[in-house]
Write a protein that binds this DNA or RNA. Structure first.
Lengths: 208, 208
DNA sequence: TTGAATCTCCCCTAAAAAGGGGATTTTTAG
DNA sequence: CTAAAAATCCCCTTTTTAGGGGAGATTCAA
């Protein structure tokens, strides 16, 4: 009997997953939690083989919870759940111990397949999602772009519509420096210009 | 017996809603659809009192479907379903005939209450959401900016990083025209420049 | 302590966008 | 049919960004 634990703050999603899983032979839902704190508490008490973990939780981010669970309960196989828009998060969850992810539009078959994959220790990728990630982007070296602290600050102001001069005044640095940061970010994120930079940054959740 | 029809492209959400509704006395799920086209087809055949309609559909936007259903089946009470992030869409759905909305994290009680509210023709607002909308923002005069079809096209290209000249070449129009569209959008969305335009447009879900 | 990353700053020129203005045609909805 | 909305196009000047280049100072981990 495979025990599955669900963490998601949307009761609807939890219900849906539960009803799908309980139709599967040899699977049972051993518990659910609607937030990270409850999840950690409950995981110490019940036997869990597979953890279905939503990426957007009310208290802690799914990424952090993923990390924590992976560290404290290394035997538990983690499957991320998310919507389409969370591409960048997913890679991060995989970097933090998840064995795969499911999109919320997954079919019953996909859910079953995902669970049996991770039980065997295999990586599972939701098919519809795969072509959204660049091929083999699961390799740890190819990852999402990293902006420095200062760059993020500058980015924030750019997104608000400030010019280099105005940002410089805010940060008490030279406009040239702001310009350098802007140019570096455009290069890092492979953007054609500032407008595209903002779009890409938002896609990657780089903007507060 | 109240007949409920569910439109959502996430099977999990559909399952969850279904299982919640079927626990309620005097309610039945008379059908489900995973996209707008199927929804319209099926609605002509079955008796439907309340339509639970997701805002993000794969083919048409929930807004458009809402409009269409409200026009063609005025007797059907429409309840929008969404996640937190879709604030702006919700107001638009209400402008287009929806009687309320539910967030996906709604409890069984809230779902039941929402359905009975709209059956009585009352507006239902998911409590957790209410304070996210500015008070009384349901009034039809206070609304989110509307971009024209052409403007959205131009916006799309801007977000990809094309310049006025490049966009003009794509659309077979003059660069001046593209520039005019850009300026108009900046004015409409009250943005300081193009970078801010992109951010605001994404916030308002104006970008595909 | 040494090298890499980050942050800082400057030069140059060309291109693009911003901020005004006005104006015509085409579409669309009443 | 007609008025409003949308789409088209142009002028002007100034500001900002893009695309190159180089380079010193600091911070931080190996």
């Amino acid at each position: 009997m495979i025990s599955i634990f669900i963490v998601d703050d949307h009761p609807m999603v939890v219900e849906g997953l539960k009803s799908v899983i309980e139709k599967l032979q040899g699977h049972q839902v051993s518990g659910v939690a609607y937030n990270a704190v409850d999840a950690i508490d409950l995981l110490t008490d019940v036997k869990v083989d597979v953890l279905l973990l939503d990426i957007n939780l009310p208290d802690v981010s799914g990424i952090d919870l993923c990390k924590k669970v992976h560290k404290e309960f290394p035997a538990i196989k983690i499957l991320g759940i998310s919507t389409f828009s969370d591409r960048s998060y997913i890679s991060r969850m995989i970097e933090n111990g998840a064995l795969g992810y499911l999109i919320k539009s997954a079919s019953q078959e996909e859910i079953a397949e995902a669970i049996s994959s991770v039980i065997q220790g295999k990586l599972y990728m939701s098919l519809k999602m795969e072509h959204f990630l660049r091929p083999l982007s699961i390799t740890p070296d190819e990852h999402l772009p990293v902006l420095t602290k200062r760059e993020k600050e500058v980015l924030q102001y750019i997104a608000e519509g400030l010019t280099n001069n105005q940002i410089a005044a805010q940060l008490f640095i030279s406009p040239s420096t702001v310009d350098t940061h802007r140019k570096n970010m455009i290069t890092k994120l492979n953007a054609k210009n500032t407008a595209a930079l903002i779009r890409i940054a938002i896609e990657y959740h780089l903007l507060g």
